[in-house]
Each structure stands twice: as structure tokens, then as C-alpha cells.
């Protein structure tokens, strides 16, 4: 089976996110003063061949821990869908 996995890597809460802050200021300058708490991360999509959804998720978690996210500064979320 093949799965499409969406990985969302975000800067860990509490760490300074200067990109998010800059975008928040820019939104405010454009008249979107209601926007707050802007944080900028990274989205990664990949196809994974696996026997089951659970196996796909386990493997992608290993990929995140080893390469796709930095455990010192980032957290990640996964979404797995059959493709």
C-alpha cells in the first residue's frame, strides 16, 4: 500500500520565531490588526510504501526524529492518508 504523509514541522512553542513576528507586524501594517500569534514552520509531503497506516506513521516518525525535524528546536505533526 502507498500512503501520502503530510508532515508539519513547527518551531517549538516558547522559542523566539522572528519570521512569525515579522509577518505579524506586516499583517498589522496591512490593516489586519486582528491577526496574532503568527508562527512559521515548514510543510513536507511524501509518499510512503507500507503494509499499513500504522507502519507508515511509525516510519515517518523515525524520519522526523532523524532528519525532517530538529528535536532541539522543533515539534512535528503527521497526517497520513491512503493514496
Amino acid at each position: 500500500m502507498s500512503f501520502r504523509v503530510h508532515v508539519r514541522v513547527m518551531p517549538r512553542t516558547g522559542l523566539l520565531d522572528p519570521q512569525g513576528q515579522a509577518v505579524e507586524h506586516a499583517l498589522s501594517a496591512l490593516g489586519f490588526a486582528e491577526a496574532g500569534g503568527v508562527r512559521i514552520g515548514r510543510a513536507i509531503e511524501l509518499e510512503v510504501a507500507a503494509a499499513s497506516r500504522g507502519e507508515a506513521e511509525t516510519r515517518v516518525r523515525q524520519m522526523c526524529d532523524k532528519l525532517l525535524a530538529n528535536p532541539v528546536t522543533e515539534d512535528y505533526l503527521l497526517e497520513v492518508e491512503e493514496s
Partner: peptide, 17 residues
Amino acid sequence: LCEAHLLPGALLRNAGL
């Protein structure tokens, strides 16, 4: 060296961008 865990911590985007 940080990514390789030979040193602790990480280096992120400069605060001033």
C-alpha cells in the same frame, strides 16, 4: 556539529532576520 550531535543545541535564524 550541532546537527551531528557532536555539540549540543542548535543554530536558528538570526533574531533580526
